[in-house]
Structures are given as structure tokens and as C-alpha cells.
Simulated assay, not measured.
Amino acid sequence: MEKEVQTIIGVDIGGTKMKAGKVVGAHVGETAFAKVNGHDSQEKTLSTVFSVIDEIFCDAVEGIGIGVPAVVDPESGVVYDVQNIPAWKEVPLKKLIRQRYQVPVFINNDANCFALGERYFGKGKDHSNYVAISLGTGMGMGIVIAGKLYNGVLCGAGEVGMLPYKNSIMEHYTGSFFFEDAYGEPAKSLYKKALDKDIKAISAFKEYGVHLGEAIKAILYLFAPESIILGGSISNAYPFFKEPLYEALDSFAYPKQLENFKIETSDLADSPILGAAALCL
């Protein structure tokens, strides 16, 4: 007799909102949302986490995976220094969730969840060694080596966005910071203008592509991946920055390495939830 398809809850905790989804196989079914107030106490934010899980939890659930934008000890499940939730300095999240729901609980950095979600449900299924980059407010990154997620110490591997670059750090040129600082508008509104063939907006994404190309060169030198998978809201604008990005790779020292190298965009819907759920797999 075949084993029944697993039912897992994936939870994506962000700085302004959180979302939980019931994942059955590769399908996200019932979901729950809540706003996050960065000024709330640790207890109140935990209560919000419980509320979104409570809304969709049932006896069929076999595990809970949680992605957080922070430093995490994946073994103990302790979350440290969540930047957008200052009250979360050292939270034993795994222990608290497991005590409440009595199922296995897995916790990791949100960028690592994105990488793992691609491994099980997305374009990472076609590669053994790849890097997944989430382009949003900042630049998050997860690394898969020989088919396995590489965490590093406290899930800190892959923080290429923190490398020194120009007069700041790489993330300030590869996340939405860049568009707001250089063009006075968020990436989302510039993307809409670029779709309407606005010259200034198109120029913004061309410049952005050069900076992201420099980040990808650093990743190539560090990890030599088969593929880089782009996700996050800014990846929607990939057609507008693809050409300058590849032009930036022209100066990469080992062109042979690029012959079969791919840069792809994720096509997963609900990738944060699927990624968190993938921790249980």
C-alpha cells in the first residue's frame, strides 16, 4: 500500500507580515495571514505566529517548517536578532512550537528556505549545485551543494550581500535600497513604469543589472554553481536587467565555467511557504 501524501504547514515570517500554508504534496492549500508589528513584544509576536498556525492546523499535519529573516541555529531552533522584529533577540522558537502542536518542527533562514523550496518543488530539481538569490528589500541567498542545503554556522552561509562594494555593501546595490537611493522610487513602481517603456525606469534596471552582475561574479568565484535561481519581487523585472547582467559577466576570469551555466527565475507560486515546508522533507 502506498504511503499517503504528507501534510506539512509552512510558515513564512517577515518583518511586516507572516503567512502560513497547508502543503499537501507540492500543493499549497488553505492559508492564513497576519500583520506583524515590529514594535510588538516577543510574547505578542509569538501569539501572532500561533494564531496563523492555529487557523490551518489539523490532525493530518505531520510537521511544521518555519522560515525567518534572521540568524538561526537549525539544530536547537533558536532564532537570534530578527532585524525587523527587535524584541526577538533569542527566541527558542522550535521548542515553543513543538510544545504547542506536538509535531516535528524545523526552522531556518528564509533565504535558505527559498533555496530548499526550489530543490523539492522548482528549478533546483534539475541541478545538484546551485545558488538561489532572493531579491527584495535586500539580497538573501541560499546554497545547495551536492543536492543538500549548506547552512554554515548559524545559517550564515551565503551572505554575499554583506560584502564591501563601492561606498557601502553589495546589498545596498542589489536590493530595493538601490532604486530608492539612486532613483527615489521603490523597485515595484519603477517596474510598472518600465513595462510602460519609461526611459528612466528602464535605465534604472540596466544600472541595477550591472551591480547584480558583480555580485554574481563573486558567487561564481566562491561556489562555481551550475545555476543561479532568482526569486523575490525584483526578479519579476529580470527581462529589463538580464542583458547588462550578462555583460558584467564578460570579465569573469574563467569563461569555460560559464558554458553550461544558467541564470533562471523561479516560477514557484507561494515559494516562501513551499520553502519552509521543504525543511520537513
Rank of each mutant, 00 (worst) to 15 (best):
K19E: 12
K19W: 06
K19Y: 00
K19L: 15
K19I: 13
K19Q: 14
A20P: 07
A20H: 05
A20R: 02
A20Y: 06
A20D: 04
G21C: 08
G21M: 08
K22H: 00
K22S: 00
K22D: 00
V23A: 05
V23F: 06
V23W: 01
V23T: 05
V23E: 05
V23Q: 02
V24C: 10
V24L: 10
V24K: 10
G25A: 13
G25V: 10
G25P: 12
G25H: 10
A26D: 15
A26T: 11
A26E: 14
A26L: 11
H27C: 14
H27F: 14
V28W: 03
V28A: 08
V28F: 07
V28I: 14
V28Q: 03
V28G: 06
G29I: 07
G29S: 09
E30A: 12
E30G: 06
E30F: 02
E30C: 10
E30D: 11
E30S: 11
E30Y: 03
T31V: 09
T31D: 05
T31N: 06
A32K: 02
A32Q: 03
A32H: 04
F33T: 13
F33Y: 15
F33A: 14
F33D: 15
A34H: 13
K35E: 11
K35D: 11
V36M: 13
V36Q: 04
V36L: 10
V36P: 08
V36T: 14
V36Y: 08
N37T: 09
N37H: 15
N37R: 13
N37M: 11
N37A: 14
N37L: 11
N37K: 14
N37V: 09
G38Q: 13
G38N: 13
G38E: 14
H39A: 13
H39P: 03
H39Y: 07
D40A: 12
D40K: 03
D40W: 09
D40I: 03
S41I: 02
S41E: 03
S41G: 07
Q42L: 06
Q42K: 04
Q42T: 07
Q42H: 01
Q42R: 07
Q42V: 02
E43Q: 02
E43M: 01
E43W: 00
E43N: 03
K44Q: 11
K44D: 07
K44Y: 03
K44S: 12
K44P: 01
K44I: 08
T45I: 15
T45G: 11
T45S: 15
T45D: 08
T45N: 15
L46G: 01
L46Y: 01
L46W: 00
L46P: 01
L46N: 02
L46E: 00
S47K: 09
T48G: 06
T48H: 06
T48D: 05
T48L: 09
T48R: 09
T48N: 04
